[in-house]
């Protein structure tokens, strides 16, 4: 199958590949997908005290479209407030990368990864607050 130029660009020069400290309070980690299905995405965000995502990293096991979707997601996340980040939809990723129908699931996975990372961050914050409150 032919890839769009944007997929190739992200695939060849992926942005924000890497790892953040998953145990840090200000880091949220989302790990979605399954090896048996052929794609696993790990997306991490680092959030400032003001609630702004100051860093985002990913690692992805998957096809070119999955790698491009996660690379794009990290780019979009950086600089956004957490509540803004929650509005990123898979359709926006699919449209930006010009994904063909059979690759839409890659963008769905990226949206899941974002949601999962944010949920993890919020859970950590809640636990922290509970600890401080107690």
């Amino acid at each position: 199958m032919a890839y769009s130029e944007k997929v190739i660009e992200h695939y060849e020069n992926p942005k924000n590949v890497g790892t953040l400290d998953k145990d840090a309070d200000d880091v949220g980690t989302g790990l979605v997908g399954a090896p048996a299905c052929g794609d696993v995405m790990r997306l991490q965000i680092k959030v400032s005290d003001e609630g702004v995502i100051e860093d985002a990293k990913f690692k992805t096991f998957g096809c070119g479209s999955a790698i491009a979707s996660s690379s794009l997601a990290t780019e979009w996340l950086k600089g956004k407030r957490v509540d803004e980040a929650e509005t990123i939809k898979n359709s926006m990723i699919a449209e930006e990368l010009n994904l063909p129908p059979v690759k839409i699931h890659c963008s769905v996975l990226a949206e899941d990864a974002i949601k999962s990372a944010i949920a993890d961050f919020k859970q950590k914050q809640a636990a922290k607050r509970a600890l401080q409150g107690g």
Partner: peptide, 10 residues
């Protein structure tokens, strides 16, 4: 192992 086939082909 740990590398997806289509990504490899790309």
């Amino acid at each position: 192992s740990y590398v997806e086939g289509e990504a490899m082909m790309m």
